[in-house]
Amino acid sequence: MALYGYARVSTVDQDLSIQVQKLKEAGCSIIREEKVSGTSREGRKELETLLAFLRAGDTLLVTRVDRLARSVLDLQSIVKEIKDKGADLRAIDQPIETHSAAGKCFLDMLAVFSEFETNLRRERQLEGIAKAKAEGVYKGRKASIDVEAIKTLAADGVGPSEIARRLKIGRASVYRLLGKSP
């Protein structure tokens, strides 16, 4: 019966040290860390590694459930995977433990609020972008492909594959911008 810790922050400039310290103090023998968004399970290799190691009687420990998942569906999927292995999930800063009915109930409530918070943040961000666009402040990211260079090279008789190689872009982008199909 092992106690595994999982620490996660969303961006590379955020710090994991407080989470790691709490997990160590709680007695975790192994702590996996990653800096990746919690809105999806995609690209979360450390989490997948931990889930693969879990055995019956083990416990996965997090500081808070939002470190594990930001959507109800993902959290329920992770909890189901943990329970199917005969293991438990526990949070240090919240009264969550999946081996009790009350702990599971609280987990589900927090998951709903976590997803709600994520959705509110996304709405505020989209509202801000729409306002900035309306005011002419936000124009999106700068184009990374020089359309004129593509047209010039094509007019000079250079083929799409060679244009892509010279400009270090994808061949499909060249075809798309020239209005041709590969």
Rank of each mutant, 00 (worst) to 15 (best):
L60V: 03
V20G: 05
E46C: 10
A111M: 05
I92S: 03
A91I: 08
K35S: 11
Q94N: 03
L51R: 06
K45Y: 09
K24M: 00
G57T: 05
L23E: 05
S29Q: 15
K22Q: 00
D88V: 06
Q21N: 00
E81C: 13
L23G: 00
A111F: 05
C28S: 01
S100I: 00
V62M: 03
S37R: 13
V72Y: 03
D84A: 11
Q76K: 13
T98I: 00
P95Y: 01
D74I: 11
L61K: 15
K85V: 10
A87R: 08
A26P: 12
S29D: 10
Q76S: 09
S40N: 05
E81P: 08
D74E: 13
P95H: 02
A56V: 14
I96C: 03
K24P: 03
G43Q: 10
L54S: 04
L68R: 13
C105T: 10
R41Y: 08
R44S: 07
G27E: 02
L51W: 06
L50W: 02
D93V: 09
Q76P: 02
C105K: 04
H99A: 01
I96W: 08
Q21L: 08
G57Q: 07
G27Y: 00
E33D: 07
E97K: 14
S37A: 12
L73Y: 12
G57R: 05
I30S: 14
T63R: 10
G38C: 12
E81L: 04
F113N: 01
S29E: 14
R67D: 07
L61I: 03
S37M: 11
G27V: 10
T98P: 07
K104T: 07
M109D: 05
S77L: 08
T49N: 10
L60T: 07
T59L: 09
K24V: 01
